[in-house]
Computed example of a mutant assay.
Amino acid sequence: MEKPDLIVNIIVTLLAILSLLPLAWLITNSLKTSADIYKMPPDILPKSLYLDNYKELFNNQPALRWTFNSFFVSFVTTGLSVIFSSAAAYAFAKLTFKGKNFLFTLFIGSLMIPKETFIVPLFKIVVAFNWVDTYQSLIIPNLAACFGVFMLKSFFESIPDSIRESAKLDGANELTIFWKLMLPIAKPGIGALFILNFVTFWNDYLWQLLMARSKEMNTLTVGVAGLMQEINPNMGLKVAGAAVAALPMIVIFILFQKYFTKGIAAGAVKE
């Protein structure tokens, strides 16, 4: 390894370690008593593992239900949005139809509009459908996301048209070509989109806060935020809740990091 590469690797490694320090501090504090958390100077590592914070979180709070709600909403919303985004991206990349460029421009333009600007009319629509405090309200409005279409369009464009034409000569219809040929080839991009969407929907605090009226319908993000607002001197409980809300994201990234890395690298190069 050349010296400049060694220096760059050392710098990147140090920055990676620094970026992990807040997470490590969060987890270690979740294993301390409230008194130890407020202690000055603080202990870097807990003197003993204090698990009562997690016991209180899952015994005295519906944390398991919050966790289920978060996983259910995030997985269902992510899965459906990836399917819809893939189909739309394939249509824009490979099919020919009237107004294609104009429609795609509208899709791109919608990315520039913050969700907060239309959250009030969207809320009124959900209320009119009587969906408040239901899974439909947490899932369906988030399916109309255009980022995935923009991201996956370049992946489908990089696939040679000869593959699609050969499949058509063999008698395959458009749905078969999309499902059995195009999707497997675009798997790296789909994996990267899955991670990005899952993290986005998991952390969609504002919309989940508006839609979840009962404590049982809260997601983990909203439920943990509610602990922060309660008049409760147990800071360890609140830190444990924050740790539980953060750990699933780490697990998801570890499981899908191969697809995420390949997807980002493939998307940066267009053949």
Rank of each mutant, 00 (worst) to 15 (best):
I252N: 08
A212L: 04
V244Y: 03
L111P: 10
T176Q: 11
F129P: 01
E230M: 12
S70D: 05
V199W: 05
V199I: 15
I231P: 02
A268M: 12
A265P: 05
V132S: 05
A89E: 02
Q61N: 13
M40F: 15
S158N: 12
N232V: 10
K100D: 06
D161L: 15
A265T: 15
L181F: 14
G191Q: 01
K94Q: 05
I254C: 08
Q229V: 15
R65A: 07
K187M: 04
W207L: 00
G267C: 15
I140C: 08
F58P: 12
K55A: 13
A172D: 09
F194I: 12
T13N: 11
K238W: 04
E230T: 13
P114T: 07
P62I: 03
Y259H: 03
P4E: 00
C146R: 03
M112I: 12
D133L: 06
A89M: 06
L31D: 00
K258H: 11
M112P: 07
L106A: 14
D204I: 08
L49N: 06
I250W: 10
P62C: 01
N197M: 02
I140M: 08
I177A: 00
E230V: 07
Y38G: 05
V82F: 01
F201I: 12
L209T: 13
F129W: 02
I264K: 13
N101G: 09
I254W: 06
P4M: 05
D170C: 00
F194L: 10
A35W: 12
